[in-house]
Design a binder for these strands. Sequence first.
DNA 1: CATTAGAATAACACC
DNA 2: TATTCTAATG
Length: 769
Amino acid sequence: MTDTAIPLSTRAAARPVAAPWLADLNPAQRQAVEAVEGPVLMLAGAGTGKTRALTARIAQIIALGRARPHEILAVTFTNRAAREMRDRVARLLGEVGEGMPWLGTFHAIGVKILRRHAELAGLKSGFTILDTDDQLRLMKQVIIAAGIDEKRLPARLLAQIIDGWKNRALTPDRVPGAEGAEFEGRAPALYAAYQQRLRELNCCDFGDLLLHCLTIFRTHEDVLAEWQRRFRYILVDEYQDTNVAQYLWLRLLAQAHHNICCVGDDDQSIYGWRGAEVGNILRFEKDFPGARVIRLEQNYRSTPHILAAASGVIAANRGRLGKTLWTELEEGEKVRLIGHWDGEEEARWIGEEIESLQRGTRGMDPFGLDQIAILVRAGHQMRAFEDRFLAIGLPYRVIGGPRFYERQEIRDAMAYFRLAVSPGDDLAFERVVNLPRRGLGEKALQTIQSTARAHGLSLAGGAEAALAGRKVAGKGAAGLRAFLDGIARWHDAVLAGANHVELAQVILDDSGYTAMWQADRSPEAEGRLENLKELVKALEEFDNLQGFLEHVALIMDNDSGQGGERVTLMTLHAAKGLEFPAVFLPGWEDGLFPSQRSMDAGGLEEERRLAYVGITRAERFCVISFAGNRRIWGQWQAALPSRFIDELPPEHVEVLTPPGLYGGRAAASAAPSASVVEERAAGADVYNSPGWKRLQSRGIHPQAPVRPAKRDEEPAFATGARVFHQKYGYGTVGAVEGNKCDVTFDHAGEKKVIATYLVAGAQAGDVPF
DNA sequence: CATTAGAATAACACC
DNA sequence: TATTCTAATG
């Protein structure tokens, strides 16, 4: 280590040498921790203990007295990573480590900074943060206002383009002329108009949180200097995922002292689609001359076969920085590979495999359910697993699915809260003026909008004016009156500092929103009401509504953890940074993984890195599988095994041949209906496909089901019968179709269930979960 | 203005 | 298949 010459502060010198955070670090990690001054690039392969090194480094900085906790900027990409780092620092340092206000995601830190200088960006400090949904609606308005047919130029596309610009730190005035060609050359103007609208509404979208900061830093030297002075040390996690805006932001902040430590792995760069630039990591040394590059290559996570399989796949990529991961762990099991006839079969097989892992199999110790994960390429693959696991009563948890805060009822409720906090929130106003129905339709809304625009008022103000001028009349008027009075009342309550939890409940009840769902007889209404209750409960953890709203805007990753032992189901993207003793990687088919898009557009390398990320999540058990047929939008489609399967080094892979797809236990528990088998035949040409032959040449022989469609021997339940289901509890049978029944469960709502999993039962109430 | 049936359309990954 | 949008009807 060369930095012993750097003078230590008096406080540090007084400390005993023993430093618990340095214990058990390997030489590379230790180097990364001790090289505190100057730029450092830590190239940390999967499972090499980079979080450990990062947290130890923070501990080192603090313990040596180089900086106090609030003088360290530590950026992560996910809230989960931030939380973990915070916990681990606290564990290393005790109380001293707890107060790290500048440890968080880029976005969370961006807002915090922006709040202090909002006026410099043309905003007021209380600005609201729009989510994707609001963003799209606003863009749609801008498009329409520009007199463009929204069908020709969909808001989604514009949003993509603008996000792309924001990722690259391009404000409307900086968009290069050549880029404006899309949208008939109107995109730049629409971008400017959109930004204008945001400012009028006192709003930011996600990209703005950083972009505004950046603009302020660029134009106000004094402000930049202030933050440069504050952040004496900077640490960045997942550096390979930074986009240009983030990169510039970091570079500005680190410019003065160069005390920046970036940790990343070019092989795990999987966010190119949202603007991440692997180039950032590749040019670090150029940006920060004299940077020390430290490689962490000892892997503590995966057994050799798993590591070798992952390395084999990633080796096909070009332009890597290159790392050689090694491990001292016992050899362990080979990676397993298995082909299935279709997606349902795959889910069925994995379900059974999980059950035998639980019991302990092949001389392996039993796995707990929370040690097992299924990692899929795309969200829609999850359904097959959910269906299957529900059917066999296997507890599971979905991470990253439809998020709590994105549900309709939650967003509606939040719109009400936003109105209470700031009655001028037009987007919120629009969302709920007529929800529940108040007799206000498109026409009334248009009147309100034009009145508002004519007087330069918010929509709420415009509505007042329209009422006063009798431009809105009839039964809509009464409803609107009540709505406006409500907003005024709630806003007063907020200003008066009323208890926000009670207020929230009052708002939901007063507005008639709760009543709306209570009156709703559809099966999901009950669930929605429960969600609303949960929402109100969640408020208790915050000081006020404002704080809550901001929190929600930034918490996009939901780890609704808890709830005992469960199998984890998530996307490969969501899995980055996690590890599991046992991992299933289903759906390795060309077109799905690698995705069709990447195959068309040449994004295969990123896709391959995703495969690498997937395999390296596994500690000691890893199964890759593919299905020959998959149902897409209700249509059966044949697929070839993924080209990545060819890249798996054969000596580290054990090919499993399914024990007769419909023999054995599987057949007894879930016989497919005749129609399903017929449809399956449509995929038979898979056998002549190059992919299939490729596999056979390697000794892989996925079996097709050769079995006549057999009659459903199960006596179906009659419509109206009372039944019991292991997972859903008691319910009443509705339509019956073959061996599938539509059952309206007393508590779980309406579901389609296979008759085998139902038993006759009469009881109402009591759901044994 | 609300309701409804039928058509169009959708799906890659996320802070 | 499941949701969302549109036009037609009450």
